[in-house]
Amino acid sequence: MNPLHTLLGTQAQRLAEPLPPRRLRITWYVLVFVLGVLDALCGCFVQALWSPWGLLLALAGNVAVFYGGMRLTGTKLGLALGLVGWLLVMFVLLAPRPEGDFVLSAAVTSYAYLLGGLAIGLGVGLLPTRAPYAFGIPRQRD
């Protein structure tokens, strides 16, 4: 059996796992959003500071937040909230300031971090989750 297949699982394996209780899921959603914000903030500085290894470290942080959010919550909404938090910070940090300062420069590593993070978010979104459809929670039958 493929080790990657064992790690990521199949749709049938994810559906067999019980979903966390609703209150816990909501807590995880908030936590994943905050982790996405922190990941973007830290990743912007790490990728520029320790090039090229910093870029790989920052992208590994993206994988951890996005995949971890999806697995903790059992839904793709967990992934989406981490990605939204990450994107909000990225948009702010990409904008030049009136003083002429900027956080993300027009360097190859900055663009690689932006596009790589988006690709990772979209790629993780294609993996199986506990919910059988996009962002919803399957109905619990009594």
Rank of each mutant, 00 (worst) to 15 (best):
Met1Cys: 11
Met1Asn: 08
Asn2Ile: 09
Leu8Ile: 07
Gly9Gln: 06
Thr10Asp: 10
Ala12Gln: 07
Leu15Lys: 02
Ala16Val: 01
Ala16Arg: 15
Ala16Leu: 02
Glu17Asp: 00
Glu17Asn: 00
Pro18Ser: 13
Pro20Ser: 11
Pro21Met: 09
Arg22Tyr: 11
Arg22Met: 09
Ile26Met: 07
Val30Met: 14
Leu38Lys: 00
Asp39Ser: 04
Ala40Trp: 00
Leu41Gln: 08
Cys42Pro: 01
Cys42Trp: 04
Cys42Ala: 08
Gly54Met: 13
Leu55Asp: 01
Val65Pro: 10
Val65Glu: 05
Phe66Gly: 06
Phe66Pro: 06
Thr75Asp: 02
Leu79Gly: 07
Leu79Thr: 12
Leu81Glu: 10
Val84Leu: 08
Leu87Pro: 01
Leu88Cys: 05
Val89His: 00
Val89Gln: 05
Met90His: 03
Glu99Asn: 06
Gly100Ala: 04
Asp101Met: 11
Asp101Gly: 12
Phe102Arg: 15
Phe102Tyr: 15
Val103Leu: 09
Ala106Pro: 11
Val108Ile: 10
Val108Pro: 10
Thr109Trp: 01
Tyr111Lys: 04
Ala112Phe: 03
Leu115Lys: 14
Gly116Arg: 15
Ala119Lys: 15
Ile120Asn: 03
Gly121Asp: 00
Leu122Tyr: 01
Gly125Lys: 03
Leu127Arg: 15
Leu127Val: 13
Thr129Cys: 06
Gly136Lys: 12
Pro138Asp: 03
Asp142Tyr: 10
